[in-house]
């Protein structure tokens, strides 16, 4: 029974991280309509910025989290301004965007390796970690942080998209970019802002993943998949569906490694993705 409670707790914590990752991914996808392969490594830059600020500069946790997320936001906007915005103006096929984003992914990962080395780092200072007992499962202080941040970010994003003018513009853009243009929306600028917000959320996710598993330059690809799997399962572009799928994914993954073995964790995630792509590509809540 204790194992069961622990598995549920782990699944919820994983689901919270995936929620953040998938929200940023979905937001950018909705506005740009292509799978941004650089999304994961942009998230990783947030983790590295946090690492640099806490270890080398010596800033406290919370300012470093905010600065790390902002840094990812800036990196994301740079990829948009330097690569994707010029491509949009040329009106090329989505595949060209995708291959360019692969290039950005490879280049940014290489930069992380050059500046920080290819080795693995833990993000949290070692020492005593406060652990709370919840119905037989132990949940660390950091894991509470992860869940709190996930709830706050999703709530904030929901309010912004629902009740602000900017939110309306973004939603119009995800529905139909051409119509948006006709209504006089500056789509290029809006997409730039969406890139900033989405990448900031990604950076936050990168920091949280780093809390859990540490950071490494190669983490980007896996983060991308952890973001893409719930997005597709929930119906790409559907934020609420993505959140539900993020928790579903967390449960399948954690219970999966209990039944099989932890080294197959990645294969479980990818297997689930493949199954959904083949049998239900529109997702559980997606529009056809």
């Amino acid at each position: 029974m204790e194992i069961f409670a622990q598995l549920v707790a782990n699944s919820v914590i994983a689901g919270a991280t995936y929620t953040i990752l998938t929200l940023g991914f979905n937001l950018i996808y909705g506005a740009t309509r292509f799978t941004n392969m650089a999304y994961g490594v942009v998230a990783a830059t947030g983790g590295y910025a946090f690492f640099f600020l806490t270890r080398t500069v010596g800033l406290p946790m919370i300012p470093s989290i905010i600065a790390g997320a902002l840094f990812s936001g800036v990196v994301g906007v740079l990829t948009d301004r330097l690569i994707f915005s010029p491509l949009r103006k040329k009106n090329v096929r989505p595949s060209v965007h995708v291959i360019a984003s692969l290039g950005a992914f490879v280049a940014i990962q290489a930069l992380l390796s050059i500046f920080f080395g290819a080795e693995f780092w833990t993000l949290l200072p070692s020492g005593t970690v406060r652990v709370f007992d919840v119905a037989g499962a132990s949940v660390t202080e950091v894991q509470w942080w992860i869940m709190g941040i996930a709830a706050a970010v999703s709530g904030l994003l929901f309010v912004v998209l629902r009740f602000t003018l900017f939110g309306k513009v973004v939603r119009a853009l995800s529905d139909d970019e051409e119509v948006g243009k006709m209504l006089g929306i500056n789509t290029d600028r809006t997409i730039g802002i969406v890139f900033f917000i989405g990448s900031m959320i990604a950076g936050l996710g990168g920091i949280l993943v780093g809390f859990d598993t540490g950071i490494q330059p190669t983490m980007g690809l896996f983060i991308l998949i952890e973001a893409a799997v719930p997005s597709i399962i929930g119906g790409i572009g559907n934020l609420a569906g993505g959140v539900i799928a993020a928790f579903l994914f967390g449960f399948v993954e954690n219970f999966g490694i209990w039944f099989i073995a932890s080294q197959w964790k990645a294969a479980i995630a990818f297997g689930l993705l493949t199954l959904f792509l083949i049998f239900k590509p529109e997702g559980i809540m997606g529009k056809k």
Binding site: I83, L87, A100, G103, A107, Q109, A110, S113
Partner: peptide, 17 residues
Amino acid sequence: AHMQQLVYGIVLILFML
């Protein structure tokens, strides 16, 4: 090795652009 990767990445981007 990382420089190589960086150049590959930039080459991909430049070709797409």
